[in-house]
Design a protein around this nucleic acid. Structure first.
Length: 851
RNA sequence: GCCCGCGUGGUGAAAUGGUAGACACUGGGGACUUAAAAUCCCUUGGCCGCAAGGCCGUGCCGGUUCAAGUCCGGCCGCGGGCACCA
């Protein structure tokens, strides 16, 4: 008997599939279609275990659906623009384009041996001019449809390198290269008007039944719909034009607890006050640090008393001071608030720091003894007492209290109920080279002019240098100087490029007609859209998926997608991440340096580098290029083959859960596949006339395996499907059935394993006279009659503790079961003559005797 | 800081509110072998017990229920996202 040798088997079958065109997606109106897509990779150059897990999952689904008779589209491409290519150019020289295409070639060479059922004829990279040219066409259509606008936005500014930084490049408030303190600076940029779709993107979440609940919840919170009160304070001592100060609050029920008003450092009033050098200095202090929400909200709260006062809307004699505060965001509401330290933690922290009054409006029952509460008159309520309130208003809490307060304001005429969304417009401008050029020209006379579609793609120039920080397009000698497309006068091309999220917001649509000279083709988009199953990491739960939902709507509006594709992903599965320990040392400047697992020697007590230096081990976290905690699946494939790698990543851990990568399981997976190989060979050597015994049991086990594996795959419980395959393999290898029954068993096993281990499955299929390619054979069906056992074993509990069990025919009436249970000798022993109060019989499940 | 999730043996895990630990990994014991590897068999949550068997056990504290890993309330710990990482 020959040894299981994947290095011989796997290339053979990959060639056979190629030859048969087994995975070429065909638009076949006679068959139902199925579009399965895994989030496409960034071409870092190396695939890692997260990729293997992601693509194997998609491949299992694709192969299973194909076997079930669907016309399957399972494409692959490259999310190829982005900062790492520019960083590589800066660090190692070379060109981002060469680096990227080199990486694509390397990664594709690593993916091919995995034996994925991908239609490679549809492959593209987002940095292909044929792709981004169509993206530029979409941009122009969206601009004309009013979906794009220009406005000022804050960016991270590195004052030494004189360049814009990504949040990732801001470390502890400092630029990653220069080390200079980062500032927030305003820049005029392009925006997609995604906020126009806030309500629709929110309400349509309800229809996404096959999305994980948590992703819908995260998106809903991100969109952040709130109902609140907008009203104007009358000001005292404010500059001209600021006689009123508009504020928005989601807690108008706490209006009587107001102790100050505060405005954002970016508020128009603050800008006027900046004429005062003291204010200017304070505002400059507020601008220190990066733009990320985390940084802004965890920064120490600082404030500046402007000396301006506002009158409380319910009592004109009651004046509140107006502060400028760094924690007020201009992006949300009106950029101005009233502070109620009694009911808001941030306001409380601020008031405590600056000695502002803290007033409670609601006081919990039982807390009434505090000096604070006693100062006010008690009010009626179950849970709270209203201390200071609106004249004549009933005391209410929560949403009802907010609604009552809004109604009160509207009746009295000092404010209106307003619905706001936290969702901001999507800023797409990036001051970087390696992205899709924004196809517009700035003309002194015509203003902003879109490029003519005939001139697309606006291609990136190759002759650029990365020896200076900043965007090389900005200083390119000729690329930016072009005639105005409208008047022909000398004009300048936009040098900002698009956010890479734009590239990934429509690639799924492009896969339906990847070579077309328009972004999409109606017949193809109509047939293939929507994506029936989208698979990717939970880290994309908000941004990528929300942007894609917006883009699909924009493409419907501009005629590039059918209306049904407004929600582009019918079903979503978010796989868990593959995690790994992180290995860190520090450089002489005290900055962290990370090390690849393959460069680290891990031992019982700790870890060292090969040169003996000690390495700090940080607990397992998401595999990321920046932390270098990535493992190379190529080593596993080289030693054990792709089927082992695929089997290993699909077994054990449920796919939605994070899994820590360990090397121990790989060998075990290989051993198991070798056992299956040996089993297949043994059955192949059985004499044709062997009669054996237990064929009926074997048929039952086969049916059970088909059922378990099918349900496992359909329910995204691949680990359970594999558990079923282990059980069936064990049964089959211990069985002594007739030759015919054994062959049926091993053929079924091959068919059931084929989504996970397609090469081994083909080999076994061929050895046991399966017709054609296993990859193109129909999925087996379980005989339902064989799935039900005639007798069931029922546990008997006494007061909820399991004490005995009985075996009864599966359809025995409950009254009979009860009698048998009470006659059981273990039950009699445990009851010890106590009278039975109650007996619960759950048919086919359990019996509980209560005494 | 805000939003979301997760927590079960030595390990990965399983369990429509109904026998907790299926299926594996590791460990232990055995068979085969001159020996080792490979392979096969048994065993493997903890404690008590010669055994039969018993008690305890799903991060912690409480609650609902005939019955809770599962439902509810409160904590603790860990992880993901936070709009210019992809």
């Amino acid at each position: 008997m020959s040894r299981y040798d994947p290095s011989v088997i796997e290339p053979r079958w990959q060639e056979a599939w190629d030859k048969a065109g087994a995975f070429t997606a065909v638009r076949d109106p006679a068959r139902p279609k199925y579009y399965v897509l895994e989030m496409f990779p960034y071409p870092s150059g190396r695939i890692h275990m997260g990729h293997v897990r992601n693509y194997t999952m998609g491949d299992v689904v694709a192969r299973h659906k194909a076997a079930c008779g669907y016309s399957v589209l399972h494409p692959m491409g490259w999310d190829a623009f982005g900062m790492p290519a520019e960083n590589a150019a800066m660090e190692r020289g070379g060109h981002p384009k060469d680096w990227t295409y080199g990486n694509i070639a390397d990664m594709k060479a690593q993916m091919k041996p995995l034996g994925l059922s991908i239609d490679w004829s549809r492959e593209f990279a987002t940095c292909d001019p044929e792709y981004y040219g169509q993206q530029q066409a979409l941009f122009i259509d969206m601009l004309e449809a009013g979906l794009i606008t220009r406005k000022a936005a804050v960016v991270n500014w590195d004052p030494v390198d004189m360049t814009v930084l990504a949040n990732e490049q801001v470390i502890d408030g400092k630029g990653w290269r220069s080390g200079a303190a980062v500032e927030r600076r305003e820049l005029v940029q392009w925006f997609f008007k995604i906020s126009d779709y806030s309500e629709e993107l929110l309400s349509a979440l309800d229809g996404l039944k096959d999305w994980p609940e948590k992703v819908r919840l995260m998106q809903a919170n991100w969109i952040g719909k709130s109902r609140g009160l907008q009203f104007a304070f009358d000001t005292v001592g404010a500059p001209e034009g600021f006689e009123a100060l508009e504020v928005y609050t989601t807690r108008p029920d706490t209006l009587m607890g107001a102790s100050f008003a505060a405005i954002s450092p970016d508020h128009p009033l603050a800008k006027v006050l900046e004429a005062d050098p003291q204010v200017a200095e304070f505002v400059a202090r507020c601008r220190k640090g990066g733009t990320s929400a985390e940084e802004i909200e965890t920064a120490e709260k600082i404030g500046y008393d402007t000396g301006i006062r506002v009158k409380h809307p319910l009592d004109p004699t009651w004046e509140l001071p107006v502060w400028i505060a760094n924690f007020i965001l201009m992006d949300y509401g009106t950029g101005a608030i009233f502070g109620c330290p009694g009911h808001d933690q941030r306001d409380f922290d601020f008031a405590a720091k600056y000695g502002l009054p803290i007033k409670a409006v609601f006081v919990a029952e039982g807390a009434g003894d505090s000096a604070l509460a006693e100062a006010f008159a008690p009010m009626k309520s179950e849970k709270v007492r209203y201390v200071r309130g609106f004249a004549g208003a009933e005391v209410q809490t929560g949403d009802e209290g907010v609604a009552a307060a809004i109604a009160h304001a509207e009746a009295k005429g000092y404010g209106q109920g307003v619905t706001k969304y936290r969702l901001r417009d999507w800023g797409l401008s990036r001051q970087r080279y390696w992205g899709c050029p924004i196809p517009v020209v700035h003309c002194a006379t015509c203003g902003v002019v879109p490029e003519k579609k005939a001139n697309l793609p606006v291609e990136l120039p190759y002759d650029v240098s990365f020896d200076k920080p900043g965007n090389p397009l900005d200083r390119h000698p000729t690329w930016r100087d072009v005639p105005c497309p409208k008047c022909g006068a000398a004009a300048k091309r936009e040098t900002d490029t698009m956010d890479t999220f734009v590239d990934s917001s429509w690639y799924f649509a492009r896969f339906t007609s990847p070579r077309a000279t328009t972004p999409t083709v109606a017949a193809d988009a109509d047939y293939w859209m929507n994506v029936d199953q989208y698979i990717g990491g939970i880290e994309h739960a908000i941004l990528h998926l929300l942007y894609s939902r917006f883009f699909a709507r924009a493409m419907v509006k501009t005629g590039h997608l059918p209306a049904k594709a407004a929600e582009p992903f019918s079903a979503l599965f978010t796989q868990g991440m593959v995690t790994h320990e992180i290995y860190r040392t520090t450089d002489p400047q005290g900055r962290p340096v990370y090390h690849l697992p393959e460069d680290v020697i891990r031992s019982e007590g700790g870890a060292t580098l090969k040169d003996g230096r000690k390495v700090e081990v940080i607990p397992s976290a998401k595999m990321s290029k920046s932390k270098k905690n990535v493992v190379d699946p190529m080593n596993i494939i080289a030693s054990f083959g792709a089927d082992t790698a695929r089997w290993f990543v699909m077994s054990d851990s449920p796919p939605e859960r994070d899994v820590e990568w360990t090397s121990s399981g790989a060998e075990a997976a290989f051993k198991h596949l070798s056992r299956v190989w040996a089993l297949s060979a043994r059955i192949g050597e059985m004499p044709d006339d062997h009669e054996g015994e237990g064929d009926a049991d074997l048929a039952r086990a086969t049916a059970k395996a088909i059922d378990e594996v099918s349900r496992g795959i359909e329910g995204f419980a691949f680990n359970k499907a594999i558990a079923g395959l282990y059980a069936f393999t064990n049964t089959l290898s211990r069985a002594n059935g007739s030759t015919g029954a054994m062959k049926t068993g091993i053929r079924t096993l091959a068919r059931l394993m084929s989504p996970m281990t397609p090469h081994l499955a083909e080999e076994i299929w061929a050895a046991h006279a399966g017709e054609g390619l296993c990859a193109q054979a129909a999925w087996p069906k379980a005989d339902p009659a064989l799935l039900v056992d005639d007798t069931v074993t029922l546990p008997i509990q006494i007061n909820g503790k399991r004490r005995a069990e009985i075996s009864v025919p599966k359809d025995m009436p409950a009254s009979e079961v009860e009698k048998i249970a009470l006659a059981d000798e273990d039950v009699i022993r445990f009851l010890a003559g106590q009278p039975v109060k109650k007996i619960i019989v759950v048919p086919g499940r359990i019996i509980n005797v209560v005494v």
